[in-house]
Design a protein around this nucleic acid. Structure first.
Length: 304
DNA sequence: AAATAGTTCAACCGCTATGTC
DNA sequence: TGACATAGCGGTTGAACTATT
């Protein structure tokens, strides 16, 4: 649907619950509702010439009868050349699911990791399609875990029970993994995280060693995998991501300390707080690894 | 063919974070 | 340090569209 084809946008000003706050678009003479192709053209050419920003005064400068907020939204969500239109692909859907499991409804952060998609796109796709898909699989879209209360698993209108809960997704962000029988670590520049996961039973100690690298410095970080995705854009984002999503909130100080050591390329003694270290690495190494099944951390070390 | 129900998604709102003075 | 402006976020709305009865 293109907004420019619609015409009946109702003025909702009179319906505002809080009438003491005046929405910016209620100013007399300012237009609301769907944008026309002419308005799009004016806004596009103005922003391409003058650049983004100063949205409040942009409408006057550009000759648009819109509020700045509306102009910004139209540009960011629709007119920007980098905005990708069309169907969301399987790979994008998979990434949205995994990022949502980690980040929750933080649409902007999720969108920031999916080139060309806006937060509005992701949000709409989630609420109209993905959340329903998870529910139909017996998975709670808020927690990404199977519904605990069987009453929530509604039978369909023909009395059939819902399908069984989906198994955990396979690790779909490949990282470099090799088998090893020793737990020594190998340096990988510029920063290495290592983990060992015991497989087999107690009598058969076999380790899978996973190694990945995170290029981080004071200006930012990137975490690239073989899918070609670069996850993350700024150090602050990463810090916020991790702090908001650690399930060990009571250990925030330890977590912060580990994290600071990590970004400062300092060695960390993981044995004092193994659970927090495990959580940190689980979050860093692979967005798809649930904390419950994340591997045991044996080492976090800096290398130059 | 018409009525109704359900879905989609652009655009809105209120609120918060951040920057500037 | 506080006031104000601005940018950006997540939640919500509702017209347009599509499917079903």
């Amino acid at each position: 649907m293109t907004s420019s084809s619609s015409s009946g946008w109702k003025n909702r000003t009179s319906n505002n619950k809080n009438s003491s706050k005046t929405p910016c678009c209620t100013k007399v003479g300012l237009k609301r509702g769907p944008w026309t192709p002419e308005e799009d053209k004016i806004l596009s050419s103005y922003v391409q010439k003058q650049g983004e920003g100063r949205w409040r005064t942009l409408p006057t400068r550009a000759g648009l009868l819109r509020c700045g907020k509306s102009c910004r939204l139209r540009w960011m969500n629709y007119l920007r050349p980098s905005v990708k239109r069309g169907q969301i692909g399987e790979d994008e859907e998979d990434l949205i699911l995994r990022l949502h499991r980690l980040l929750g409804n933080r649409w902007s952060l999720i969108a920031g990791r999916i080139p060309g998609r806006t937060d509005n796109d992701i949000k709409n796709y989630w609420s109209t399609y993905l959340s329903k898909k998870l529910i139909s699989q017996g998975i709670d879209p808020r927690t990404h875990k199977p519904f605990m209360n069987p009453n929530l698993n509604n039978h369909d209108n023909q009395g059939r029970p819902p399908p069984p809960p989906a198994l955990a997704e396979p690790n779909s962000i490949p990282i470099f993994i090799h088998s090893s029988h020793d737990d020594s670590t190998t340096s990988i520049s510029p920063l290495e995280m290592s983990f060992n996961e015991v497989i087999g039973n107690d009598n058969r100690h076999e380790y899978i060693k996973g190694i990945t690298t995170l290029n981080a410095d004071q200006d930012g970080y990137n975490f690239e995998n073989s899918d070609g995705f670069i996850i993350g854009s700024s150090l602050r984002d990463l810090e916020q991501d991790l702090h908001h999503h650690t399930e060990f909130n009571t250990e925030d100080d330890v977590f912060a300390s580990y994290f600071n050591s990590f970004i400062n390329h300092e060695d960390v003694d993981v044995h004092q707080h193994p659970r927090t270290a495990k959580n940190l690495v689980a979050q860093l190494v692979d967005y798809t690894v649930p904390v419950d099944s994340s591997p045991d951390v044996t080492h976090i070390n800096a290398c130059n």
